[in-house]
């Protein structure tokens, strides 16, 4: 999709902003968590749907953001003070730098498509999780707990993001800003160059586009968004653990994005919220059998809605050409 339709996005964010008047606190807490996952889903939708890079290690950047937040919040980084605010900045910067480095190795080595890319990104996620388990600095398999919450300096006082309502509102604000920012990036001229590279890198190069640079930019931007999501996730829960980096979460986010629609970050975010909600409900109804039911549902969605449940809908609203 070349345009994220603006109206559905604005309606959604307005509705979610009004939700605290009607919803109980537990639901807001739940949604705040889903919105952090939603940032991860949007990052994958951008790099996969727009850039054509199906990354099996997107959680690596989410986890790196979470760990960066945790280490800075606990004051474990040499020369740096213990500061959750600094942690949130590092939650963006560290995954960005990591993606730039890995991207230069992977994208620069021209393995950006096909099986080599899939296997390499998959392996990277596994390695990262193992490293975190083996590293005492990162808290080993227990991870790091007792992180201080994020605090917003307001006039006259400091608001700690501990309670569901301010946490929810902060996540909502960030998610909306990221979604609208990505929509802008997609509609911008550089967004169409990225799609050209996705469609046919060789043809794009013959038009004067540098495919490696376009992919590297997309990969890095997506990592920054995923890292931000990871940092906010860690801030909500006050702890981080190796599975946040690993293959399990990287696969989960693929499911969210496939269900929601990879062509649009907004659709992917809705996919994350939908799948997490359905997961919870199926767990209540079916007990241990829920993954099986979820798998069947996923199969149905992929067969019936190749653009994703929300992706197809948004594409029609945007008047995108039929595939």
């Amino acid at each position: 999709m070349s345009r994220e339709p603006l109206l559905p996005a604005l309606l959604l964010w307005t509705a979610l902003a009004l939700l605290p008047f009607a919803a109980p606190a537990w639901l807001l807490a739940q949604l705040a968590q889903y919105l952090a996952y939603g940032l991860l889903a949007m990052s994958l939708a951008y790099v996969w749907g727009q850039g054509g890079l199906l990354s099996f290690c997107q959680a690596l950047f989410f986890g790196a953001g979470a760990y960066a937040f945790a280490l800075a919040g606990l004051g474990r980084l040499p020369l740096l003070p213990a500061s959750p605010g600094l942690g949130l900045v590092l939650a963006v910067l560290v995954p960005t730098a990591l993606a730039l480095l890995l991207g230069l190795l992977l994208v620069g080595a021209r393995v950006a498509t096909g099986p080599a890319w899939a296997v390499l990104t998959l392996v990277l996620g596994v390695i990262a999780e193992r490293l975190a388990v083996a590293s005492p600095f990162l808290g080993g398999s227990n991870g790091l707990a007792g992180l201080p919450p994020l605090a917003l300096p307001l006039p006259g006082r400091t608001l700690e993001l501990l309670d569901p309502l301010p946490t929810y509102l902060a996540l909502l604000l960030v998610a909306a800003a990221v979604q609208l920012g990505l929509a802008r990036a997609i509609a911008a001229p550089s967004g169409s160059l990225l799609r050209a590279v996705r469609e046919d890198p060789l043809r794009a190069a013959h038009l004067g586009i540098d495919p490696t640079r376009a992919r590297l930019r997309a990969f890095t931007l997506a990592a920054a968004v995923a890292g931000l999501g990871g940092g906010l996730f860690a801030a909500q829960f006050g702890f981080v653990a190796p599975p946040l980096l690993g293959l399990g979460l990287s696969t989960e986010v693929l499911v969210w994005v496939a269900v929601g629609g990879r062509g649009s970050p907004l659709a992917a975010l809705l996919g994350a919220v939908l799948v997490k909600t359905v997961e919870g409900l199926l767990g209540e109804w079916l007990g241990a059998g829920w993954p099986l039911a979820l798998g069947l549902l996923l199969l149905l969605v992929v067969l019936l809605f190749p653009r994703g449940i929300f992706g197809g809908l948004l594409a029609r609203l945007a008047g995108a050409p039929d595939p």
């Binding site: 070349s2 001229p189 160059l193 050209a196 469609e199 046919d200 013959h206 038009l207 586009i209 995108a320």
Partner: peptide
């Protein structure tokens, strides 16, 4: 240097307009 291919090198999933926009932006 501009080139056309034996099998037309258009960007199949993009609209005709967007194909031209890509070419214009890249140039």
């Amino acid at each position: 240097i501009g080139r056309t291919f034996q099998v037309p090198g258009v960007l199949a999933a993009l609209s005709v307009r967007e194909n031209l926009e890509v070419a214009a932006t890249a140039a």
